[in-house]
Design a protein around this nucleic acid. Structure first.
Ligand code: MN
Ligand code: MN
Ligand code: ZN
Ligand code: ZN
Lengths: 159, 159
DNA sequence: CTCACTTTCTGGAATGAATCAAGACACCGG
DNA sequence: CCGGTGTCTTGATTCATTCCAGAAAGTGAG
């Protein structure tokens, strides 16, 4: 809901052409932190009409490479994108519903942690994912991953 | 290469029946840290002959649920398993070749980090993934993800 | 030892995210 | 105003993983 010219400047600053799909995708990601590709396609189509899924995938790749958006992928989740970049923040993920929230990094730049023994690796980033349960799920006493429909695998016995 | 009876005890201790596939999968994971499912199937078949991929997937799920193995899934990687459990250690991943090495946790139990602002979540684990480049890749000057064959997407311009 | 119950096998089929493909067209910007 | 970049359309493909279901095998409690 903020000025598109702002986004235009971002794109030009990254030496990227300003196109409708790019601006729309960038806006969608900025307005919906940790949004997944499917939802981006939905949001973008609402705003600018027809956009091919191919275009969205292409745009996301370009924006990610340019560093305008960040791609995150907690285990068990599809790829998600956010426009909050450059501050090396972390995430907390709900084991029950998959909700993601930002967690500020005390250090603010990468790598914000030093490995005791780095096994010789040259480390450029320490990614931290906090796992737990969000307030909603805690209150409702949800337990397992809500994403899975709790269908019982035929080879598995119900507990 | 260690006693199978050791593994049997592990399984029984988790109230799991001792079956050939289970013992074989557990041994494979223990002997090949951070092994992926495909490789597990290979290793298991070498040792005990025919085992269905379905059985391996089932076994891995059971072992993971029982806490005998840990499943890790760094972004851009397929699921990998390890038998080193209970010590809350972390991992360092090579951006070029995907190699994974263990990183001891200074604390040794979860959660080993406290979030500045946990957004109300009840946090039970802080997972840390160090990203960087392994010694081999650094020496050979590899740059991009080696997993991807560097084929140029038709919609993408080479830099 | 026996039997009920669990686990695995077989052989596919389906899923879902992501990528690839390629020609035609649109449109951005120097 | 063009050259070249980006997008469109339509479909196919890949790959890990899960689902399926009946039959066979194997385990362990009693
Ligand atoms: Mn974030
Ligand atoms: Mn490990
Ligand atoms: Zn939740
Ligand atoms: Zn490497």
């Amino acid at each position: 809901m903020i000025g598109g010219s702002e986004l235009e400047r971002l794109l030009r600053g990254a030496a990227l052409r300003v196109t409708r799909p790019r601006v729309a995708v960038l806006a969608a990601v900025r307005d919906h932190p940790h949004i997944d590709t499917e939802s981006i396609i939905g949001v973008v189509r609402e705003r600018v009409g027809a956009v091919s899924h191919q275009a969205v995938y292409d745009v996301l790749r370009v924006l990610t490479t340019a560093g305008l958006v960040r791609r995150i992928q907690p285990a068990g989740s599809v790829a998600r994108y956010e426009a909050r970049v450059g501050d090396n923040h972390h995430h907390v993920v709900c084991r029950s519903c998959g909700a993601i929230a930002d967690v500020d990094c005390a250090v603010g730049f990468a790598p914000c942690l030093t490995a005791a023994d780095d096994a010789g690796y040259t480390i450029d980033e320490a990614e931290v994912v906090y796992w737990g349960q969000c307030t909603d799920c805690a209150r409702q006493g949800r337990t397992g991953p809500a994403a899975e429909q709790r269908t019982v695998h035929s080879h598995e016995q119900p507990t």
